[in-house]
Amino acid sequence: MIVGLFNYWIVILMMMLGFYVVIAANNLIKKVIGLNIFQTSVFILYISIGKISGGTAPILTEGVEIYANPLPQVLILTAIVVGVATTALGLALIVRIKEAYDTIEEDEIYLQDRTL
């Protein structure tokens, strides 16, 4: 059982690390990196579901019978590119926040908002 479910546990551990960074970090860039770690754990979850023992990459060739499942790979392939596009959007927002508030620490932004 331990070997069979190993992949899920790694994924969950990594997901929780990312989750912790997102909710506990005060710095906005650290939050974005935490979100990226969270995202990567989901990628690994999908790809590990697609794996079949004894299989190979899903490029059809003569004499090979077992292939990994192509569907999760397609979903994650596009998700990675979408992920970097949304990360870029988040970073652009951070740049604008820095220009407006002159800080990227969450508590200082909160403080400035309250004193307005």
Binding site: I29, I33, Q73, I76, G83, L91, I94, V95
Partner: peptide, 29 residues
Amino acid sequence: LDAPDVAMTEAAIGAGISPILMLGTLALI
């Protein structure tokens, strides 16, 4: 895990483009 397409994307994006964008943000702030 038998996913060369995904590995290629992750290597180009995760190790190439996202750190560059993050460094760009660091330079800006």
